[in-house]
């Protein structure tokens, strides 16, 4: 905790989660989660499945409603407005505007199957941002070039490999020029040999100083790019800190057990490959 305080003290955080709580009936998916992201920082969220990693990520851009706590973007509360002693959820229109500050990359890509790669990338800039078609097309082609898919622009998602689809999805998120990029297990649906191409694109983004929050199982990647790693279990943040510190000297038994099992799994995967 002390290390995060150092990095965030001088700079105003771009994103802040305060006591965020999310319940499904009696089940507590998120239990008073606190988190701060400095501008340009890269945060990786790790932990066993069902620990609330994806839920936490999805509360940030309001794909999940929250039952308690608050989320601040550049110091302003998003998702709710304060009226006297109460808070109300913001209107759908406001939520939509606030959501534009975030770009999202999904585990299953969620590309629009009825549009080509380039159309996927330009659809929202044209119809939401109101960009002119030639402008959006030029920007879209440049983005596809950046993810190494310039020559696939006229292919439909069904004609692309998983890794290529995910790179189109990253370009699509970037096309809206969001301030924060959210990645929800971006490589989990990929065949092992396709993971590298997606991670390398993400690594390049991290180096250009983008604020990124990434739910991932790729510990090697987290170690390389993350400024901070958050370990979650049962809806709570158990430990957080710089990756090397966290991976090499986990303080809690739960974290030790989890990192040991992940190391074993990845060793097995590499021996197969």
């Amino acid at each position: 905790m002390t290390t995060t305080a150092q990095t965030t003290q001088s700079i105003r955080p771009i994103l802040e989660l305060v006591d965020v709580t999310k319940k499904y009936g009696d089940f507590c998916a998120l239990d008073r989660v606190n988190f701060t992201a400095a501008p340009g920082s890269v945060t990786c969220i790790v932990g066993p499945s069902g620990s609330g990693k994806s839920t936490m990520l999805r509360t940030m851009n309001m794909l999940e409603t929250i039952d308690g706590g608050a989320i601040y973007f550049h110091g302003e509360m998003i998702g709710h407005t304060v009226h006297g002693q109460h808070r109300y959820p913001v209107s759908d229109a406001t939520a939509r505007k606030q959501r534009l500050n975030f770009g999202m990359v999904f585990q299953n890509f969620n590309l629009f199957p009825n549009y080509t790669a380039l159309e996927n990338v330009t659809l929202a800039p044209i119809s939401v941002r109101g960009k002119s078609k030639p402008e959006a097309l030029a920007a879209g082609e440049e983005l596809l070039g950046k993810v190494g898919l310039a020559e696939k622009k006229n292919n439909y998602p069904s004609e692309l490999s998983g890794g290529q689809q995910q790179r189109v999805a990253i370009a699509r998120a970037l096309a809206m020029e969001p301030e924060i990029l959210l990645f929800d297990e971006p490589t989990s649906a990929l065949d092992p040999e396709l993971v590298g191409e997606v991670l390398s694109v993400m690594q390049r983004l991290a180096r250009t100083g983008r604020t990124m929050v990434i739910v991932t199982h790729e510990m090697g990647f987290a170690q390389d790019v993350a400024d901070e790693v958050i370990f979650m279990d049962a809806g709570r943040i158990i430990e957080q800190g710089p990756p090397r510190e966290l991976f090499q000297n986990p303080k809690t038994d739960r974290a030790k057990k989890f990192f040991a099992s992940v190391a074993r799994e990845q060793a097995e995967e590499h021996s197969h490959a």
Partner: peptide
């Protein structure tokens, strides 16, 4: 339709009407 398609529209900031006209509607028609 898979839930992911509606979520992707939301994440990109498409209004429900635009999401239906541009993305979801054509898939429904198909």
């Amino acid at each position: 339709l898979t839930a992911g398609q509606a979520e992707a529209c939301k994440a990109l900031g498409l209004s429900p009407t635009k999401a239906y006209v541009k993305v979801l509607g054509p898939q429904v028609v198909r």
